[in-house]
């Protein structure tokens, strides 16, 4: 079972990921669909009266969902491999340019060493594997306390280049 991390701690995950298979019925409650599925079943998904999340591959950038953002309360950005840094930009575009205020979740292959970067580019939550060392994830939020550039997340400017990071990451 994958775990959901929020502010360094395990959080409850009420969302259900729905596949792209047409035949499968969409379950009740909050669901996450792919961009393909959203485009295909847009009318049906819109008619549901529950929260909707969308999942983007790293090659699917913020502009792809910009026009529909008000339909989603969650955007999941997938890292096929931790070295693929595109979702960091996608998250920032969603927050800063498109004004998205819902949850942005990282999934796929991410490392604790990237946790602070995720928080600072606008992610709220991370899906980690079952075997993840939660202590490493928790520690990652506070191991560097100084940032040298403006970004997102709650941080206190020391100057307009330097800032002190909030270890809670919230």
């Amino acid at each position: 079972m994958a775990l959901l991390l929020k502010d360094g701690a395990v959080a409850e995950d009420a969302w259900v990921v729905v596949g792209d298979d047409d035949a499968a019925a969409v379950p009740e409650g909050a669901v996450i669909v792919s961009l393909d599925r959203w485009r295909r079943d847009r009318a049906a998904l819109s008619a549901r009266n529950t929260a909707l999340g969308i999942r983007l591959k790293s090659s699917q950038l913020a502009a792809e969902i910009a026009a529909d953002l008000d339909r989603f309360t969650l955007v999941v950005l997938d890292f096929p491999v931790f070295r693929d840094g595109r979702p960091f930009s996608t998250a920032r575009e969603l927050r800063e340019h498109h004004g998205f205020t819902g949850e942005i979740r990282a999934s796929g292959h991410v490392l604790p060493d990237q946790y602070q970067f995720l928080v600072r580019t606008g992610f709220n939550t991370v899906v980690v594997g079952e075997g993840a060392n939660l202590a490493s994830w928790r520690h990652a939020l506070s191991e560097i306390s100084v940032a040298y550039q403006a970004a997102l997340s709650a941080e206190q400017p020391l100057s307009n280049l330097r800032r002190r990071l909030d270890p809670s990451g919230s």
Partner: peptide, 16 residues
Amino acid sequence: EIIRQWSTLHPEFTFL
């Protein structure tokens, strides 16, 4: 020096 500071552990541009 300004660019050095700005680019140090840049959260968005460390996995280019």
